[in-house]
Amino acid sequence: MAADYELLCSMLSSLTLNERHPVPNMANAAALLWQELPDINWAGFYTMEDGYLLLGPFQGKPACIRIPLGKGVCGTAAEKNKTQLVKDVHQFKGHIACDSASNSEIVIPLHDKDKKVCAVLDIDSPLTGRFTDEDKAGLEKFAHILEKACM
């Protein structure tokens, strides 16, 4: 079952319409993804804090609190400023296993007004190969709405 990214983006736009604070917007975005995306086991954010990523609002099991830049899929996405679509996390060098049930992952960098990475959107799945180029394009649009709303 494919996600309806047009609908997800419309829902996020409505949720962030009159709110500029990033924490409630990220919390609602994580809840929306958790509710609407099939076959995921974690959806949330890490924010940039003094040169590392710090756990932010999320849905799922407890997660790693701090991730160094360049480490794991999240740290790599932040350091390279590029979406990471990983079909099999066990093949990703340096993967950080916060949840042993995760087998695939997608991480999208979010940018502040100065175009610097200020957070990442991280989504995990227990299915190998869960995320596609269609997911990448849809989630990048989703992330862009959040950037415009509050980053």
Rank of each mutant, 00 (worst) to 15 (best):
V23M: 10
V23H: 12
P24K: 02
P24F: 01
P24N: 01
P24E: 02
N25K: 02
M26Y: 06
A27K: 06
A27C: 07
A30F: 00
A30G: 01
A31R: 05
L32I: 10
W34P: 01
Q35A: 14
E36R: 09
E36N: 06
L37G: 01
L37D: 00
P38N: 13
N41M: 04
G44A: 01
G44P: 03
F45D: 00
E49W: 09
D50H: 15
D50L: 10
G51P: 15
G51E: 11
Y52S: 14
L53C: 15
L53A: 14
L54K: 14
L54M: 12
L55P: 04
L55E: 05
L55T: 05
P57V: 00
F58L: 07
Q59D: 09
Q59F: 03
Q59H: 07
Q59N: 11
Q59G: 08
G60K: 06
K61S: 14
C64G: 08
C64D: 07
I65Y: 11
I65N: 11
R66L: 09
I67W: 05
P68F: 09
P68H: 08
L69I: 15
G70R: 13
G70Q: 12
K71W: 08
G72M: 10
V73I: 15
C74T: 07
C74W: 06
G75Q: 04
G75V: 06
G75D: 03
T76S: 15
A78H: 02
A78E: 00
E79G: 05
E79K: 14
K80A: 12
N81E: 15
N81I: 13
K82M: 14
K82V: 08
T83E: 10
T83C: 13
L85K: 14
L85M: 12
L85G: 03
V86G: 01
V86P: 04
V86I: 15
K87T: 06
H90F: 13
Q91G: 07
F92S: 04
K93A: 15
G94K: 00
H95E: 04
I96S: 01
I96N: 00
A97R: 12
A97H: 11
A97K: 11
C98E: 05
S102F: 03
S102A: 04
S104I: 00
S104A: 06
S104K: 00
E105V: 04
I106V: 14
I106L: 11
I108Y: 04
P109F: 13
L110C: 06
L110T: 02
H111F: 13
D112Q: 12
D114L: 09
D114M: 10
D114R: 12
D114S: 14
K115G: 09
V117T: 09
V117C: 09
C118S: 14
C118L: 11
C118E: 10
A119C: 13
V120I: 07
L121V: 08
D124P: 03
S125K: 00
P126G: 12
L127N: 15
L127I: 14
